[in-house]
Design a protein around this nucleic acid. Structure first.
Lengths: 307, 307
DNA sequence: GGCATCGTTCAATCCAGCTCAATGATCCTT
DNA sequence: AAGGATCATTGAGCTGGATTGAACGATGCC
């Protein structure tokens, strides 16, 4: 391998055929250029330039090397440019997705703002499924997902949506009549469980093991999908803490949603693979922060988001 | 452009996926590897590796860059290898030529020795013409020429042949009866001139402007070829200092060759373009030196031969 | 929870990269 | 033929970045 400066000096001199201009072009002194060329020639074992104090010409060996090296350097620069573009540039295509159609509006506002700022970057919006959301982020088929925290191992952007929690109970359940309940009631009823595929952090957040006071929460049956879990609730097999949006988006006659007054909000925001923190992604996260109302504190995960 | 070390570290790490092994492989410390990768990532603007203290993986951007960069590096190494091979290696083909068939035997002995030493380097032997010998060397169609010194601007190898000089005079000329003559007689007779295309040094050597004592030498007519020049002598238009080999190779009844007893020898040896001092050429020059009898002092021109 | 492995960080060290000025070679001018 | 101008080379000396080594911190295993 050649040193960067060696190849640059060699190719520049092969073009200019003049030490002074070459030195100026590269911000060096002629002495340095001379040294570098000599070192290269020593390494190659033959003269690359045929030079006197009045003329500089390529030798056959030098000409061959210049011809061989020029496309190589061009290819290297293109490879680097491609990487820098993926890293810093905001072009190409950005794929964003939402999880649950009620999160779409805020996402679409961010998309609109991003699109204004970066007209030459296509944005593809799609809806993700809970089952494939993680793998889609990991394999790069989507760049950013708007979903609820936590999302283990992913970088988290600023909060876009926050909602209160409610407890889903069967329609005839004693708690259904309450105006609101405390998280403590979880200790008194089995809680329907999320499927094993869900991340441990998410599962703990939605269906904690213990109440705030420390009492253990009895585990109920687990469902494969959210609808199935709600059906388990309706069947009286347990209760389930959910977001209040369910009242609007899952209005079932056999279910009642009772507000929980002492639970932290469920927060949703952009989520992405830390190793996929490219320029596009950074810019989109910025757009989401701005549509969330500039004042919103940008809460990022420690890993990979600190650009 | 990337620094050599940056690309090497990056590609090595992309292969090894392990900082320790990468560092060892490149003779660095892990700290340095970490720094270099970080600098590269800063330059690219995105993470290239997804790493914890227990695992190192390529990010999508990193994988792309590695794929793009690997062939580039391979091509650069091949280009350099090609140049080094031309410079130091002794392979491919070497084209040598002689000027005057009577120089061929010593050349062929050198070719034989060279062929023994470097069986995988083809050697092409041909006869050169005085008119195209210089251009053939300059355009690379022959690498080494065995001819007489001096040869302006060319590198000179060790002397392979040395011969005394003789003065070519018409058959009936007063000097034809002498056993030998001095260079001083040149002041007394017009001297046939070499054509203008001949190098100035060569011309001075064969047909000096002044005798050793400083007397001017009258210029006779010039011929286009050596045969023509001899004919001018035969016609009585002048005399001409030549090599003694002419007696054998140009035996004309209308000419006499009288030894010159106070002229330096005419020396012949390998001649090549300084800028074409490749490994092949160097090795061939060494072979000529060896067949000339190892003791022969290697007399090289100052320019380009000092490898 | 302790241990081993491994990547990161930081301060200290040192050498290579670089500059500057003198030198020498070449060509042009008069 | 001498002088001058241009330009590549050379060598000494300096500076800044490359490199090291150790301490640190994170991670996964037993």
């Amino acid at each position: 391998m050649l040193e960067r400066l060696e190849t640059e000096v060699f190719l520049a001199l092969a073009e200019e055929l003049h030490f002074g201009r070459t030195a100026e072009r590269l911000g060096l002194t002629t002495g340095r250029v001379s040294q570098i060329v000599r070192k290269l020639e020593r390494q190659v074992g033959a003269a690359l330039f045929d030079r006197t104090s009045r003329s500089v010409r390529l030798t056959p060996v030098g000409r061959q090397l210049a011809e061989d090296l020029a496309p190589v350097v061009a290819a290297m620069e293109q490879a680097l440019r491609r990487a820098v573009d993926a890293g810093k540039g905001v072009t190409g295509e950005l794929r964003v997705a939402f999880l649950g159609e009620w999160t779409a509006p805020v996402l679409l506002r961010a998309v609109a703002l991003f699109g204004e700022r970066h007209p030459d970057c296509r944005v593809d919006v799609r809806e993700a499924q809970l089952s494939n959301s993680r793998s889609s982020l990991e394999d790069g088929s989507i760049d950013v997902l708007v979903a609820s925290y936590p999302f283990d191992g992913m970088a988290l952007g600023p909060v876009l949506l926050a909602e209160r929690r409610a407890l889903a109970v069967p329609a005839g359940h004693p708690l259904a009549a309450e105006a609101s309940v405390s998280l403590e009631v979880l200790a008194d009823h089995p809680v329907v469980q999320y499927p094993a595929v869900t991340s441990i952090g998410f599962k703990r957040d939605r269906t904690p093991d213990r109440t705030p006071s420390g009492r253990p929460v009895p585990k109920g049956p687990s469902g494969a999908t959210f609808s199935e879990m709600l059906s388990l609730v309706a069947m009286g097999r347990g209760v389930l803490p959910v977001g209040e949006h369910c009242r609007q988006y899952y209005p079932r006659p056999d279910l009642a949603y009772v507000p929980i007054h002492d639970a932290p909000l469920i927060e949703r925001g952009p989520i992405w693979l830390p190793s996929n923190t490219t320029g596009r992604v950074r810019e989109f996260i910025r757009a989401t922060a701005d549509v969330a109302g500039g004042g919103a504190a940008v809460q990022c995960s420690a890993r990979g988001a600190g650009w």
